[in-house]
Design a protein around this nucleic acid. Structure first.
Length: 189
DNA sequence: GGAATGATGTACT
DNA sequence: GTACATCATTCCG
C-alpha cells in the first residue's frame, strides 16, 4: 500500500477503494471493515464538494497530499471519513460510505450503542462511529498510523454498481457513487 | 453579527 | 414516510 494508489484520478480511486480494508488499532481494541460503498467529490464541475469554493479552515486537509484523511462533522453530531486523492492541492477526495464489518464487531456495537451487524457501518456516520474515527483523525495519514487503509494483495475485481450520490442538493445527477453489487452492508437508498 | 445550511441517523406515526 | 436532534462553518449584510 503506498501513496500512488490515491494519487490518481479520483473516480478511479473511488472504484478501486471498494474491497479495500479499513483498519483501526485503538487502545479499546482493533476494528476492521471492508469498504463496500464510496462517493467521489471532484474539484471541477462539482458544486456538491466541500472544496468547490476553494480552501477553508474546515476543508484544509482536502488539499493535502493523497492518502490523507479528511474528517468533518456532519449535521452537528455525525462524522464522515474521506480519503484525499489526486495531486496535492487539487482538493478532491473519496467519501467512505459503508463497510462490511470483519473484525471487532463487539467493539463496534458498543461504540454504536446498538446491535445488528447489518447496520453497524451501513452509512458514513455509522461507519465513523463504529470504527472510532473522530475529528482527531482529520489530516492524518491513512497509509501509516493507527487508522489505515490496506489493499488486499490479490483477489478478484469486485462487481460494482454506479449511481447518483446521496444526501446532497447540488450536482445530484452525477453518477459518482459506487458500491459493491449485492452487498447487504451498503447504506440504504 | 446573524442566519441558513448541511456528504446523517433515529424514532415515531 | 415524516419529524427532529444539534452545532460548526459559511455566507451575507
Amino acid at each position: 500500500m503506498d501513496g500512488a494508489f490515491f494519487a490518481r484520478d479520483t473516480v478511479e480511486v473511488a472504484r478501486a477503494l471498494v474491497g479495500v480494508l479499513l483498519v483501526h488499532g485503538s487502545p479499546e481494541g482493533r476494528t476492521v471493515g471492508r469498504v463496500v460503498e464510496t462517493e467521489a467529490y471532484l474539484a471541477e464541475g462539482d458544486p456538491a464538494s466541500h472544496a468547490h469554493r476553494g480552501p477553508t479552515p474546515r476543508n484544509a486537509s482536502m488539499f493535502a497530499r493523497a492518502g490523507t484523511a479528511y474528517v468533518f462533522r456532519s449535521y452537528g453530531l455525525h462524522r464522515c471519513l474521506n480519503v484525499v486523492t489526486a495531486a496535492a492541492g487539487v482538493g478532491e477526495a473519496v467519501l467512505l460510505r459503508a463497510l462490511e464489518p470483519l473484525a471487532g464487531l463487539e467493539l463496534m456495537a458498543r461504540r454504536r450503542g446498538r446491535e445488528g451487524a447489518r447496520s453497524l457501518c451501513s452509512g458514513p456516520g455509522k461507519l465513523a462511529q463504529a470504527m472510532g474515527v473522530g475529528l482527531e483523525h482529520d489530516g492524518a495519514c491513512l497509509l501509516s498510523g493507527d487508522l489505515r487503509l490496506h489493499v488486499p494483495s490479490a483477489g478478484p475485481r469486485p462487481k460494482l454498481a454506479a449511481g447518483p450520490r446521496v444526501g446532497i442538493s447540488k450536482a445530484v445527477d452525477l453518477p459518482l457513487r459506487f458500491r459493491l453489487a449485492q452487498s447487504p452492508f451498503v447504506s440504504r437508498s
